[in-house]
Design a protein around this nucleic acid. Structure first.
Lengths: 277, 277
DNA sequence: ATATTTATGGAATAAATATTCTATATTTAT
DNA sequence: ATAAATATAGAATATTTATTCCATAAATAT
């Protein structure tokens, strides 16, 4: 058989190509094609020897198979199967790595390309947010917020715009939201007024601001319920949270996006509004 | 450090154990713990050498890490990370299957539904942003910003968080950004200092805030270049802009998302940084 | 301050894994 | 039916990848 000129880098394309070429393949290669379509996970994760055994063929047949579809060898094809596993998932690094390897021009300077990087990374972060956040967490958070007399918000630096937006959104739905912005150094006074009947909503990402952690600690001491938006279970404020949302926002060129975080803020506010009404 | 007696076979257990043991680990091992929790996909798919490189440690450290958690070596631990990927992809396809069969996914609460609406609307808005913004506009805006001595930012209510974020991002790239937040009613004084060598960046969406329009008018009178982020060419500030970005952000349940606007802000800031450097 | 324990980096080694190669089998064309 | 072309199995080899080991560095206890 002659080698196909194509060598898809997208799992879906490869899958389609295998199905399409199926009848043109030799007996052994058809056997492999069937196995590959039925067990894409094994194709992604197992060694050539294991796959060969399970599919009932020789290892070399798998290499012939890969070459028939235009790859340099089995390993190259396997990477495509791996992306399938990753695509629904949360690591940008793998995707970015493949993106560059796919022959896309390296560092881009033109603004449209920067914009494109941000929009696609943002879209992906949103997609992953939707999968990562559990209904239980959301319900708990909304529950706490519903019961709260007032909601205090804290977020420093990059997290500050999120806190600002949160305050705006909560106020819009007639919720008593207080932004702890430390204007005039009144932070400790504002804190002092917090009680068990209130809620503290803290937002903090790497590099975690010390002030935010301090505020959370003080709130915990005073038995104030705490909702946390952060990026890792290792975050200094995660352990003290009553409800902790772990958000993996996209990072592009050293700038971490806020798309997912803002989106969650919005969803929380609207959920609260629906609950209260 | 002594080896933990445990050696979880379930990804979730492993993740929890890593987070729990974190503070008891040595410096290098903590570094790896962090990387592992942040990039579980890489842990599942990459070779020891690649992971070591990305995490900034020696390959042998990864093996010590695996052994510290009771595994015989790195490979054994990696299999647990791989399980996670497989489980994930199974549950995803399972959900899809159920979706088509039942017409709806089972575990849907009001909040998850709302979240879903926001994530998908946001993703769509990002996609459309990428198509709607022209290279010319971006270049012009970056041009103006590059030339500017300082950048003043104004945005009210819903636009305020964007202005706040913009100010943060611009400051991070060593650009002199001034947020016109009208603290202490000093807005007119701040305005007075604006000259032709500066830039005003105004953000305004329906219902357009009067203050923003006023500020833009005063800036125009004084020949200050103006960049505008708004939602319609009919916006009261659009006509006075030197560069006007028209952003159609998603609206869900009466709440307009900020995903696209924030994304553009970020892209502008990074483009500026690249240009300046 | 000094000794003792523990952790680390990096080269050396072992193990595994992929790939190539060739004699043999199978298919296809005449 | 025979020759030519193509595909296959399986061993041999090359390559990649994981692991071990030890000298050195850092931390901890004395």
């Amino acid at each position: 058989m002659k080698a196909a000129l194509t060598a898809p880098h997208q799992p879906d394309e490869l899958q389609a190509l295998i199905a399409q070429q199926y009848s043109a393949l030799s007996k052994r290669l058809r056997q492999i094609a069937r196995y590959a379509l039925d067990n894409p996970n094994d194709m992604a994760l197992q060694t050539i020897a294991v796959i060969a055994e399970q599919a009932g063929v020789q290892p070399s047949a798998l290499i012939r198979f890969a070459k028939a579809f235009g790859y340099s060898g089995f390993s190259e094809m396997q990477r495509v199967f791996q992306t399938k596993l990753v695509q629904r998932s949360n690591s940008y690094s793998e995707r970015i790595r493949l993106y560059w390897e796919d022959g896309a021009e390296p560092p881009k300077t033109r603004s449209t390309e920067v914009l494109h990087e941000f929009t696609s990374a943002g879209a992906q972060a949103l997609e992953q947010l939707h999968e990562a956040i559990s209904a239980v967490q959301l319900e708990q958070a909304v529950e706490l917020l519903t019961a709260a007399r007032s909601v205090s918000l804290i977020g420093m630096r990059r997290s500050f715009p999120v806190a600002v937006y949160f305050a705006y959104a909560l106020n819009r739905i007639n919720c008593d939201a207080r932004l702890l912005d430390n204007t005039g150094g009144m932070l400790s006074q504002q804190l002092h007024a917090l009680s068990e009947q209130d809620v503290l909503l803290a937002i903090s990402f790497q590099p975690y601001a010390g002030e935010t952690a301090d505020v959370v600690l003080q709130a915990v001491e005073r038995n104030v319920p705490v909702i946390v938006l952060t990026d890792s279970p290792l975050s200094p404020i995660a352990e003290h949270a009553d409800v902790c949302f772990e958000i993996k926002d996209a990072e592009v060129r050293g700038f971490r996006s806020l798309a997912a975080t803002m989106c969650l803020a919005q969803a929380l506010a609207v959920s609260l509004a629906l609950r209260v009404e």
